[in-house]
């Protein structure tokens, strides 16, 4: 009895596996990285430039490693042939997007809008003096070039 049930369930399983349209094995291909273009290096000069542009710091070697890994991963895109393919900005590219008339539709909300600022003076936002470049800081991360 038990044996019969076992055979039945095995048969059922096999039959079902074969009938299913779901592939048996993962279908992803292995990419030969040696055929891809060389990855751009994340060196000291790049680290400095990015920190200046982003106004955030890498913080530590871990931050630099994270970018290196992100670039390493992004480089895989070069395994895809994109000859004669146009870049795609938005899925609505084939539509005319709605533009409203250039008229004032709201207002009188100065207080509401400005109440989130930490520092204000007579309805102005307050910022410290501008046009002064960031001080260069000594950092102990970033690869030596």
């Amino acid at each position: 009895m038990l044996q019969r049930r076992l055979t039945y369930s095995v048969k059922f399983y096999i039959k079902r596996c074969f009938s299913s349209k779901v592939p048996e094995k993962p279908t992803w291909v292995t990419i030969d990285r040696s055929k891809l273009p060389k990855e751009p290096k994340v060196d000291r000069e790049v680290v400095d430039l990015l920190e200046r542009l982003s106004l955030v710091e890498f913080n530590n070697q871990e931050g630099v490693d994270r970018l290196t890994k992100a670039v390493h991963s992004a480089n895989l895109l070069h395994a895809v042939n994109t000859d004669n393919v146009e870049p795609m900005d938005s899925v609505l590219e084939d539509r005319i997007l709605y533009l409203r008339d250039d008229v004032v539709t709201d207002g009188n909300c100065l207080k509401d809008v400005m109440r989130n600022a930490t520092k204000t003076l007579e309805d102005y936002y307050v910022a410290p003096p501008g046009n002064i470049p960031l001080k260069q800081k000594e950092r102990d991360y970033g690869n030596k070039t």
Binding site: L50, E51, S54, L55, V56, E57, F58, N59, E62, G63, R66, L67, A70, V71, A127, P128, P129, G130, N131, I132, P133, L134, K135
Partner: peptide
């Protein structure tokens, strides 16, 4: 409050976590 840039940098340094900073830099 040394300069606008210094304020921005300090604000963003204190404000964002490593993940956000990492994605901005990348």
């Amino acid at each position: 409050e040394d300069s606008t840039e210094e304020l921005y940098a300090a604000t963003r340094h204190e404000g964002f976590n490593d993940v956000v900073r990492g994605r901005i830099l990348a």
